[in-house]
Amino acid sequence: MHELGIVFHIIDALEETARENDLTSIERVTIQLGEVSTVIADYLTDCWNWAVKNKPLLEDCKMEVEPIPAVTHCEACGRDYGTVAHGRICPHCGSERTYLLTGSEILIKEIAAC
């Protein structure tokens, strides 16, 4: 279960942030999730809600997920296009010399805490 592993990494990171900033309770965490990050937002929040039970720091913590669109750049014609719609082959010029600009991120953006 990929999402569960990701959730454990988020919990580790937040526990460290809490120690560094003397936080006792985190109410909300905002995650930015790339469209092609291989993580499914619904599965992530399901795993989150299960994993934070019985953790005093996080038991009431809500997870919000903001998507990051996947954009691919074409080295041949220099243009960008939507990765999900067109994949690896540039819809403008047909080249396969392309690379992902954004969309694979899994970022902890911010938390609301006291």
Binding site: A13, L107, E110, I111, A112
Partner: peptide
């Protein structure tokens, strides 16, 4: 009741690993 603060983290979840 302490006031809730917003902390910007901007960290990849892979950073610790």
């Amino acid at each position: 009741m302490e006031e809730v603060r917003i902390l910007e983290i901007k960290q990849s979840i892979f950073a610790n690993n």
